[in-house]
C-alpha cells in the first residue's frame, strides 16, 4: 500500500491503545452537575487531567500580609486585573481578567504573589468568591 500509506498505519493503530486522556470521564455523563456532585460525595472518581509541569502558571495566590502596597504589580499587569484598595493599602485581583502571564510575580519586590497549579476555574459568576483574590 505504498500509494495509501495511511491504511497500514490505521490498521496498526487499531490494535494499539488510544491516545486520549480520559479527563474527566470516559464518556460525557448524562448530567454534568449530578456527576460533579457524586464526585464531591466520593461516589465517583474523576480521571485526572494531564499533570502540570513545575513553574506552571495557574490561578494566582496572594500573600496579603507580606504585601507592602507598592502598586508595582498594577503598573506591569497587561490586563489591568489588579485593583488597589486605598483603605488597606493592599490589592485585589480579578481572576476572570487575569491572563496568567505572572508578570506581577516577577515584579513583586517582596514576593507576595505566586502562581498555583489550579487551572479548572470555570464559574458562572464573574465576581464569585473563587474569582476574586484579595
Amino acid at each position: 500500500m505504498s500509494f495509501l500509506p495511511a491504511i497500514p498505519e490505521v490498521l496498526r493503530q487499531f490494535f494499539k491503545r488510544p491516545a486520549t486522556n480520559l479527563f474527566p470521564a470516559k464518556y460525557l455523563p448524562s448530567s454534568v452537575t449530578k456527576y460533579l456532585k457524586s464526585v464531591q460525595e466520593g461516589n465517583a472518581a474523576i480521571n485526572p487531567p494531564v499533570e502540570t509541569p513545575p513553574n506552571f502558571r495557574g490561578k494566582i495566590l496572594y500573600d496579603r500580609d507580606t504585601c507592602i502596597g507598592c502598586k508595582l504589580c498594577i503598573r506591569v499587569c497587561p490586563a489591568n486585573a489588579i485593583e488597589f484598595l486605598p483603605d488597606t493599602k493592599k490589592v485585589r485581583i480579578f481572576v476572570t481578567q487575569c491572563i496568567f502571564c505572572s508578570q506581577c510575580n516577577d515584579a513583586c519586590p517582596v514576593d507576595a504573589l505566586h502562581m498555583s497549579d489550579e487551572f479548572l476555574l470555570a464559574d458562572e459568576d464573574r465576581y464569585s468568591e473563587n474569582m476574586i483574590v484579595e
Binding site: Q13, F14, K16, A19, K26
Partner: peptide
C-alpha cells in the same frame, strides 16, 4: 468506534 480506534481516539459510546 472502529474509526475512532484507528485514529487513536476513544470515540463516542
Amino acid at each position: 468506534k472502529f474509526a475512532a480506534r484507528m485514529q487513536a481516539r476513544i470515540g463516542p459510546p
